[in-house]
Nucleic acid binder design. Structure first.
Lengths: 213, 213
DNA sequence: AATAGTTCTTGAACAATGTTCATTCTCTGT
DNA sequence: ACAGAGAATGAACATTGTTCAAGAACTATT
């Protein structure tokens, strides 16, 4: 007896993830998937509307896993009784860095795809997942005794996480030497250190009158 | 009489930039370029080895222009006698934000392409341009009286700029409402405010013992 | 000016790929 | 056993990147 429709979808997604990880979005071909899954090209299109939907589904799985990783990292710290804000943020950042390193090919694809969908319909499940990550960071910030109302703390969480994200992705533009990995981590350490110190000293309210236009 | 080889290359690049800006990398097709430039498909391949090289050339132009914009913004401040570090950094960030907003389609394409080239040869002209931008930021940081040696200041500059970059690109994942634009600018303001305050209070040396694994 | 050689241009042709759909197959309920 | 619904198939089509042999245009030499 053959695989369930659900099981076959899983199989296809696993294959797709491997393909993406090995060669990026360029490497996600209908015929390759079909061949490796032992089904025909048409059957792939029976399971998913088009390759974009396959790509989207793979991304959702990755983001889910990243969320789980982050929560797991937080739980670890909880278990160890670590309450220092800087340590906890660094641990989350470390989890993020590790995750990206573990998916050298498919993570860039997530970002590229994510960007492409700018013109698509309204709010997505993507946003929900990202908000979840932001909430975790905001929760950690709440533990610190910075003088922030909820709104400003949420802004700080988004800012901090976007910054970590920027460092990690900018860093992996160049060759992924171990030297590069060190540079990334040094930047993350500096960012988090400066950020926490800055929050402690009220830097979140240091308004300047420069306008963006 | 017809156009020079150089002039025709320019024309092709201008067309390519428009195509990228309108529809991203997907929209950069050899036949479209040829048609709009009034030449044949083969001639495009006479001017450029392949479409990747066209894309690369467009990106170089964009990065060049971004560099020029940043330098111009700096010169403006110089002329106005602004020496405050926070103001100057914010002005640079504003220039960056404006630039990205002005190239809604092609800037994402720059990033996506940039990422794809990870497996390519060695150091590129890209890196030189990025280093140039980092140097400008480092120069501004030097004006502040933070207690940083050259190496640490360079690291701080790369960190700060990567962070701004992350905020801007993360922000443009979602719809490019004006609300989104405001959110981005709020994040940039908060980042720069916190960053400067953090540097003032020695946050750049706040080492934690958490290792990335 | 005529000619030989060089370079550029062309567009037809090929290969790879996303996507569709009429046909065939398979299974389920009666 | 059989009818019908649903799934699987893979040939066929459209689009696109890329190549290349043939022709056109230009340059330098005599």
């Amino acid at each position: 007896m053959a695989l369930d429709k659900e099981e076959m979808s899983e199989k296809v997604l696993a294959i797709a993830e491997t393909l993406l990880n090995e060669g990026g979005a360029q490497n996600l071909k209908a015929r390759t998937i079909a061949e490796q899954a032992g089904i025909s090209v048409g059957s792939v299109y029976n399971l998913f509307a088009d390759l974009d939907e396959v790509h989207r589904a793979v991304n959702m799985r990755l983001l889910d896993r990243l969320g789980a990783t982050g929560i797991a990292a937080m739980a670890d710290l909880e278990r160890q009784g670590v309450t220092d804000v800087q340590h906890r943020i660094l641990a989350m950042a470390a989890a993020y860095v590790r995750f990206v390193e573990a998916h050298p090919g498919s993570w860039p694809a997530v970002l590229a795809f994510n960007r492409r969908r700018a013109t698509r319909p309204g709010p997505d499940a993507y946003d929900a997942l990202l908000d979840e990550l932001f909430d975790i960071v905001a929760g950690v910030l709440k533990a610190g005794d910075f003088d922030l109302d909820d709104e400003r703390r949420a802004l700080a969480a988004r800012t901090l996480w976007s910054s970590v994200h920027g460092i990690v992705t900018s860093g992996y533009v160049a060759n992924s030497d171990s030297r590069q990995a060190e540079e990334i981590w040094h930047q993350v350490e500096l960012l988090v250190g400066v950020f926490v110190k800055g929050l402690e000293h009220g830097g979140a309210f240091a308004h300047a009158e420069t306008k963006p236009v």
